[in-house]
Nucleic acid binder design. Structure first.
Length: 276
DNA sequence: ATACCGACCTGTCAGC
DNA sequence: TGCTGACAGGTCGGTA
């Protein structure tokens, strides 16, 4: 569920609440784990590590960790990264130890401050991993890419523009909601072949995408069903959606009913009058 | 190389 | 009150 603005909100929440805190112990549920690294690797990397920084990379949360290599003073510092992908339904919550443990809690990290960081994910599409190298997302950051590079991503691509926006190896962080919402704001139909977009349309899309992502971050993301930030708070950008989740409802600009079609297996929403 | 499609999971909601 | 099917913010691997 979480796309760039939601993951950014969670990462900022973690940064605010637990940066500088130390992980004292880690509990992992017995159930089949949504892990990319082994349980032992995760426990070894996390326990005793200080959280230096939490930030977003694409749709991933990268948590920079460091700990002393051995107990002797002056020993080298070990650096690692805890990588979290929230999948469709994952959340990273900072709670008190007394907070009831939600069903589908897969990891609890007890912090030196007494707080707990919990990973909860009902559908288990999320992933946890640790790495000693710097994690890099495959595609460009939509909020950092320059316009010429952005336009270059779509040149020669026959795929629908909607599919291209969702392709994480092109842009990292755009998901189903913000693909639809940016196309709506740019007046472009989701099924248009990517390569058919004119220079002017690409410019509109570039500006619309960055604006909608910035606005959604300001609103704490979109909470369509169960998304919450690190403090359990809901986002409220869903009230600003022009098309996503609004099938049959009147377009906010021209009152034409919003259409829903399926592109590459994903629901796609648009205004048949405003989007060409 | 590129592009669909089902699979991976659980939960919810509409309709019968 | 069930039951069934469709659908849900994402990605992967297999196939054409």
């Amino acid at each position: 569920m979480p796309e760039l603005p939601e993951v950014e909100t969670v990462a900022r929440g973690l940064q605010r609440r637990v940066a500088g805190d130390t992980i004292e112990s880690v509990w992992l549920s017995e159930k089949k784990q949504p892990l990319k690294s082994s349980t032992a690797e995760i426990v070894a990397a996390l326990e005793g590590s200080r959280i230096v920084q939490a930030r977003r990379v694409g749709k991933h949360i990268a948590i920079d960790l460091e700990k002393a290599n051995g107990s002797q003073p002056g020993m080298a510092v070990l650096h690692s990264q805890w990588i979290v992908h929230l999948g469709m339904t994952g959340s990273m919550l900072v709670t008190t130890p007394e907070a009831p443990i939600e069903k589908h809690t897969h990891l609890i990290a007890k912090m030196a401050s007494g707080k707990e960081v919990r990973f909860v994910d009902p559908r288990m599409f999320g992933k946890l991993a640790v790495t000693s190298s710097q994690f890099q997302a495959p595609g460009h950051e939509p909020l950092e890419i320059d316009f010429d590079s952005f336009a270059g991503l779509f040149r020669k691509r026959k795929t629908p523009i909607k599919s291209a926006l969702l392709n994480q190896s092109l842009l990292s962080g755009v998901g189903n909601i913000y693909a639809d919402e940016s196309l709506a704001r740019a007046g472009i139909r989701p099924k248009r072949r990517a390569a058919s977009l004119t220079h002017a349309e690409l410019k509109k899309l570039y500006i619309a995408l960055q604006k909608v992502l910035h606005d959604a971050i300001k609103a704490g993301g979109s909470s369509v069903s169960d998304y919450v930030g690190a403090d359990g708070e809901r986002g409220f950008f869903q009230i600003k959606h022009l098309v996503y989740g609004r099938e049959g409802q009147p377009c906010r600009k021209c009152k034409t009913p919003i259409k829903r079609i399926v592109i590459a297996g994903r629901s796609s929403h648009y205004c048949p009058a405003c989007q060409k």
